[in-house]
Nucleic acid binder design. Sequence first.
DNA 1: CTTGTTATTTGCGCTAGCGCAAAGACAAAT
DNA 2: ATTTGTCTTTGCGCTAGCGCAAATAACAAG
Lengths: 230, 230
Amino acid sequence: MNVSPKDLRQVVVFQNATEADLRQILENSFPRSVEEGEYFFLQGDPANYLYVLLHGQVKLLQTNLRGQQVNLRTIYPWQMFGALGAVRDKINYPASAMAMENCAALAIKSLFLKDMLRTRPYLSNDLMHLMTDYVQEMQVRYRELATERVDQRIAGALLRLTAQSGQKTDKGVELSFSRQDVAEMSGTTLYTVSRVMTEWERRGWVRLGREQIQIIKPHELVKIAEGTER
Amino acid sequence: MNVSPKDLRQVVVFQNATEADLRQILENSFPRSVEEGEYFFLQGDPANYLYVLLHGQVKLLQTNLRGQQVNLRTIYPWQMFGALGAVRDKINYPASAMAMENCAALAIKSLFLKDMLRTRPYLSNDLMHLMTDYVQEMQVRYRELATERVDQRIAGALLRLTAQSGQKTDKGVELSFSRQDVAEMSGTTLYTVSRVMTEWERRGWVRLGREQIQIIKPHELVKIAEGTER
DNA sequence: CTTGTTATTTGCGCTAGCGCAAAGACAAAT
DNA sequence: ATTTGTCTTTGCGCTAGCGCAAATAACAAG
């Protein structure tokens, strides 16, 4: 995959960058391909590179000491991930980045971007936007996990996915996620996700397939997520 | 409470600021006192000000539609809170800030700091540090809530508090928090906190009082938090 | 000392959700 | 067509943790 400086404008953090800056960024980066199931980096690795996903889909996973993991976020093309190293020195990735399909990404040296940030306020500003978004999303998910019933959280996760990555088709929005994926995103188990969503299918709100979820009545899911109905 | 520019250096985000900048910040801010139980701001209010706490203790709470709330963070003197407005335009506070005791704080106009950030890379950088710390803490807490047993989470919360605000005394570290506080910080109920901690007291690991927790054997709590013992 | 207030403990019953295990469905490969 | 592997569903039993209610303890004010 070949990337031109202009293409990089699709990256939120680079949206206001000058043509010259973009070229410089490209010069200090290299492409990296990772096959499905492999990792861009593992939790605990030194955060020497940050990535811009060009193609595919990446999961950011955090693992505890006993190996149980949660999905912190899913990355889509032109999104940046692993950017912490550009802010802090000598830091390790707090999560692992797994390729959900065959992926291509642009690897940018953390130190290079860190240097650039020092003299490009617009870059700092845009990166900060990203961080604040992220903080807020995590706060909401934390609150949901602490106070919401599991069906509310699943509905919330599906609605977030719909907004982030839904493919609109003739009949409803189509999501490509396994039950396990949804479970990791809503802090539950694949069994519970299956049970809850099967009930929703019975009611005609969603249509289910293998690694496939069609949202037919998003409005009903909103009511579930809000807790106004059960 | 009177604040000099130099005092502001205690604020992490201002640690590298020039004397002139600090003076300017002070000129564009005003003191605000809030009594115990009252709010600096409510979730949903337009985020026009950010605050530096001078005295007291502030809880950041997020509330869901049914009024259940979680404690996102506790603020201590010289920490900044409500800083989102300095990054994004037209944003509302995503949480409420409640004074746990009589509090004094410095209110700084968001727009003013936002302007300042544009031309002060060191400020951006330090603010970004704060954000990344926050992101990481929320990620960890989220993972804990999703995968850890309740006793592990309570132990984790106590250990975090020990690091952040523990008063060292002759016999162990002393924390001033109610069971309800601990419950909100570990995503459970005051009943469960009471039961779990009472058991720990029986084992001689902690000593309990009214709004008071003395950590006697932190090492044992670490083992609980890690899940290596039950 | 008395009284009122607030924090804490504890008994008790209950249920939401977990997680094993086995069966079924689907897709890709041979 | 058959095999193989993965994903999904579902029955079943279980228990961790919730949350009411009532008792108790600690503190504050008069």
